[in-house]
């Protein structure tokens, strides 16, 4: 049976996280990732049974909460830590180089969009125009 509090917590954490994830500021994106991570952890937790600590000897197997989701969540928590550190370093680096931590549009994609808007083909015309038919196939000597 699902726990309604969990369901609501999941919804709010993931909803708020996604909203932040769609931002351009890297710090906000990061906070979004953390919130989503927590939300997903609760989601996994919701799949297991509620109960006492899963420690053999202190509680009986029937009383215990489900240990499997817990092991998974534990892994997830620590990985989130690693990702947080990485994104923070990325944000700092971005600030150091550019003076802000906004996620920029990809420059190459921008260039292609501009080309498309101008209805042009790319400038590298290797495939478009044949070179002058100089069929110079004289053997080459290595420059030695």
């Amino acid at each position: 049976m699902p726990n309604l509090v969990y369901v609501i917590v999941i919804g709010v954490l993931i909803g708020a996280g996604v909203t932040l994830l769609l931002e351009r500021t890297l710090t906000r994106v990061l906070i979004g990732v953390i919130l989503i991570g927590n939300g997903v952890n609760v989601l996994i937790l919701n799949g297991g049974t509620f109960g006492a600590a899963p420690i053999v000897g202190e509680n009986t197997t029937e009383e215990m909460s489900d240990p499997l989701p817990q092991a998974m969540i534990l892994t997830a928590i620590v990985i989130t830590l690693g990702i947080t550190a990485f994104l923070l370093a990325l944000a700092y680096r971005s600030w150091q180089l550019l003076g802000h931590d906004e996620v920029q549009d990809d420059a190459e994609d921008r260039r292609i969009i501009e080309l498309a808007e101008r209805d042009e083909s790319h400038q590298d015309d290797e495939a478009d125009e044949p070179p002058d038919p100089v069929y110079d196939d004289t053997p080459r000597k290595a420059d030695r």
């Binding site: 999941i10 919701n46 799949g47």
Partner: peptide, 12 residues
């Protein structure tokens, strides 16, 4: 965001 949150909650 809200849509994804709702879907996730319902999925759970």
């Amino acid at each position: 965001g809200i849509a994804v949150g709702v879907v996730a909650a319902c999925m759970s």
